[in-house]
Design a protein around this nucleic acid. Structure first.
Lengths: 143, 143
DNA sequence: CTCGAATGTCAGGCTACCTGACGTTCGTCG
DNA sequence: CGACGAACGTCAGGTAGCCTGACATTCGAG
């Protein structure tokens, strides 16, 4: 009798943590600067020409403050830089430094490898289904 | 051209948050004490006869401290109580109060409804696949 | 030229984890 | 029986990720 099916939110959290740890460990093992999934995501939504914090926030679907914070960490790590936007004094463009580009690629690769390992473990079909399910729009939780 | 596929950890986090918010909102709307998914999970692994903090930690696969913390919140909310274990003075049993039982049921139902709504939205097959994928053992992230 | 809107930022808060460090209580073993 | 290690509960403090609130600066449109 399986009386206590683990609840979905918990399972999701566990899965997230699995990726988190894997990414951090692999980056660290590879000598790269530690980058969190959130930061990797930030990299991923970054334009090559540079993007403002507000725009990043929109693309990541978080608040400006949250994006700002993520950017801050990467800037401190020397992976991003903020340059004044020539077009407007009230905004600054966020850009990758050379080290940032390298870290970005590494993080991206590691994430891809983790996803692969997942596919090996649970089967490609299931892994694909997982992604598909997660990519579906969630909508408001309480209609 | 979809240049920037969102990374899995991010998607997992979003999904988790969707449930989080749904649960909290529904509980609050229903007048119940606010219960987080973690706390709901705690309820779920709780024996009717009472369980020690350490045992809860094992079942939830977190540290004693984390479990302690979750218990603490629920105790403060009046949903759990700690009673001295007659069998041993160094441990205390954690038990649901009447209010705790009620909150537990409510939380459980809400979670089930959310999962249903998810199934409606993305299709039952996908929802089942999601659960299956998440329930598979994850193993160490960095082998 | 004034005002509302957008931008970036600081401050503070919350949840869910974690490690470290105690003091207490037992079980066991010499 | 008495000492010792192991388990338990707890306090303290730390991290990541997200949030709201508040503010000063800068634009753009009226």
């Amino acid at each position: 009798m399986p009386p206590t099916r683990r609840n979905l939110p918990q399972l999701l959290g566990d899965a997230r943590r699995w990726f988190d740890e894997g990414l951090l460990a692999a980056m660290e093992a590879g000598g790269s600067a530690p980058v969190s999934p959130t930061q990797a995501q930030l990299f991923a939504v970054l334009d090559d020409e540079g993007t403002t914090v507000s725009e990043l926030a929109r693309r990541m679907a978080v608040t400006r403050q949250t994006a700002h914070q993520a950017v801050h960490g990467l800037v401190a790590a020397g992976l991003l830089e903020q340059v004044p936007d020539p077009a407007s004094a009230r905004q600054r463009l966020i850009r990758r430094t050379p080290a940032g580009r390298s870290a970005h690629r590494t993080a991206h690769d590691v994430l891809a490898r983790l996803e692969e390992r997942l596919a090996e473990r649970i089967g490609k079909d299931l892994a694909d289904a997982l992604r598909a399910a997660l990519e579906a729009p969630w909508g408001p939780p309480a209609p």
